[in-house]
Amino acid sequence: MKIDDKPILPATVATRSEAAAALADGDIHRSAAQGQGEDTVQLSGNAERVARMSEALQKIPDIRVERVQELKRQVAAGEYAVSARDVAEKMLMTMKKGVAV
């Protein structure tokens, strides 16, 4: 589709001579402007509900501070242990999904 700055001819123009006359008179711009109304947007109840949920999600922190602090405590106390098997399984699952590790 090519977009240019040429005016749109109204449906009432049937021939080239009528089009030339309309362009000369400036009728094209007036008739095109007359057909345009004000744009409006109306949201459904679902859209409004989604907007409220999105706002609520924005307020939830990305980091679970309590969990991070507990893990830090466990590491500092030497109590944090990770199963090598669990790590290997997660790595394999990640590679199967095609995600680089």
Rank of each mutant, 00 (worst) to 15 (best):
M1F: 12
K2I: 13
I3W: 09
I3S: 12
D4M: 01
D4Y: 01
D5T: 08
D5L: 09
D5V: 03
P7D: 06
I8W: 03
P10M: 03
A11E: 13
A11V: 13
T12C: 02
V13H: 00
S17T: 12
E18G: 06
A19T: 09
A20I: 12
A20Y: 04
A20G: 03
A21R: 08
A21N: 07
A21G: 11
A22T: 11
A22R: 01
A24R: 13
A24I: 10
A24D: 13
G26Y: 03
G26P: 00
D27S: 09
D27Y: 03
I28Q: 01
I28P: 00
I28V: 15
H29G: 14
R30M: 11
S31G: 01
S31W: 13
S31Y: 13
Q34A: 15
G35N: 07
Q36H: 09
G37S: 12
G37Y: 02
G37D: 10
E38G: 05
L43K: 05
S44L: 02
S44H: 04
S44I: 00
N46C: 01
A47C: 03
E48R: 06
V50Q: 00
A51L: 15
R52M: 07
S54M: 13
S54P: 00
E55W: 04
E55Q: 10
L57H: 11
L57C: 13
Q58N: 12
Q58E: 15
K59I: 10
K59C: 07
P61H: 06
P61K: 02
P61R: 01
P61T: 08
D62N: 12
D62H: 10
I63V: 11
R64T: 07
V65F: 08
V65R: 01
R67V: 14
R67T: 12
R67A: 14
Q69P: 00
E70K: 05
K72D: 11
R73M: 09
A76Y: 06
A76P: 03
A77W: 00
A77F: 04
G78C: 09
G78L: 07
G78P: 07
Y80N: 00
V82R: 01
V82M: 11
S83A: 09
A84M: 11
R85T: 15
D86P: 02
V87C: 01
A88D: 13
E89C: 05
E89G: 06
L92N: 12
M93G: 15
T94Y: 06
K96V: 13
K96M: 14
K97N: 11
G98S: 09
V99C: 03
V99R: 10
A100Y: 13
